[in-house]
């Protein structure tokens, strides 16, 4: 596997609301390897966007360390810090809110080019914007470059957001739900374009989605990290994670998702949760936060000890890390009976 380009180490983040601290991320640890396809998945509110913002330096963690190209970003000053900020870009979740409606596409893309002194003069700027629009397949460029965002479709706007993220020649792009708002018939084209950017521009894309099937497609050659209530509960090679999920939450999730094949989806066995209630972040259960719902819960262990990511005892290839103590011990999972 390639070297990490970024690393998150024991990241905690909380937000204050009505004088109580809401822990949104807890003990998040993972590396982003250079040029890998990495995908973060999880249900709404599990902390995906927050993690993405922390990677991009848009939000400081409450505690924990962020490394970029091996360096702790809090130690970066001056041009080194600018280099980091330029090198890690985020494409925000909402394509409507993130584009300024009063600027044309050219204005929007040329601004960061001038600001970072990547171009001199209008002629050069226009040439570079043209190139960027071609990279994201917004062609013919002359039909798009002088338009305003409202004159473009949702899919086209999303391509503009991507082009804007590319203006600073980033080495990492965090793409937050970048195709979720786009219609099914054009979604895959957008995703394929993003996947091609890796080879064309040597950029590593961290893709955030709530859709596991989409994650599987994007990260087929890479890795998926599964988040639950602010923690990373499993991370590993996509093909293995999909075929043999280890963490109970990943297992339940995969079993619950309907599939676009009538016979297959109707024959699917759904693992029943012990409880359907999702705990609030303000009242997180002790031990493993999944334990009140987990079908394989082990009394006296899961409700007491907080599991950290680790390699399961019976995993000889070291390709997956799981935050579940019974799984780490290599125990045969037995359904909990009350």
């Amino acid at each position: 596997m390639s070297e990490p380009i970024m690393q998150l180490e024991s990241i905690y983040r909380s937000f204050k609301k009505d004088r109580t601290d809401i822990p949104v991320l807890q003990d998040v640890n993972f590396a982003v390897n250079n040029l890998e396809f990495l995908c973060l998945v999880g249900e709404s509110g599990c902390g995906k966007t927050t993690t993405g913002k922390i990677l991009a330096g848009l939000l400081p963690p409450s505690s924990g360390k962020i490394y970029f190209e091996g360096q702790d970003i809090t130690t970066l000053r001056g041009s080194a810090r600018n280099h980091y900020r330029r090198s890690v870009q985020i494409i925000h979740q909402d394509p409507y809110a993130s584009l300024n409606p009063t600027h044309t596409i050219y204005e929007m893309l040329s601004f960061p080019l001038f600001h970072h002194k990547f171009v001199r003069g209008k002629h050069q700027a226009r040439e570079r914007v043209w190139e960027l629009l071609e990279l994201v397949d917004l062609t013919p460029v002359e039909d798009v470059i002088d338009k305003y965002p409202y004159q473009l479709s949702g899919g086209q706007r999303q391509r503009v957001s991507i082009a804007r993220a590319l203006t600073t020649n980033p080495s990492v792009i965090v793409a937050d739900e970048s195709v979720s708002m786009v219609d099914v018939s054009i979604r895959i084209g957008l995703l394929q374009m993003m996947m091609n950017l890796r080879d064309e521009l040597d950029v590593t894309i961290v893709f955030i989605t709530h859709d596991l099937a989409l994650a599987k497609y994007f990260a087929w050659e890479g890795r998926i990290g599964v988040m639950y209530l602010g923690r990373l509960v499993e991370i590993g090679k996509t093909q293995e994670l999909i075929a043999t999920p280890r963490h109970p939450y990943t297992k339940v999730l995969l079993s619950a998702i309907p599939e676009p094949d009538p016979e297959k989806t109707r024959a699917k066995r759904h693992i029943q949760l012990r409880s359907e209630d999702i705990p609030r972040l303000t009242e997180l259960p002790d031990g493993c936060t999944f334990h009140p719902r987990c079908p394989w819960y082990v009394e006296g262990v899961c409700d007491v000890d907080v599991p950290r990511l680790g390699i399961p005892a019976n995993d000889s290839n070291n390709t997956v890390e799981v935050a579940c103590i019974p799984v780490q011990r290599g125990e045969e999972l037995r359904l909990y009976e009350s």
């Binding site: 018939s185 084209g189 099937a213 087929w220 995969l254 599939e259 094949d261």
Partner: peptide, 16 residues
């Protein structure tokens, strides 16, 4: 154009 969850790599195409 719809990705699936089986254990094979998907071959997908968008509608233009």
């Amino acid at each position: 154009a719809v990705p699936k969850l089986d254990h094979e790599q998907d071959v997908l195409t968008s509608i233009k």
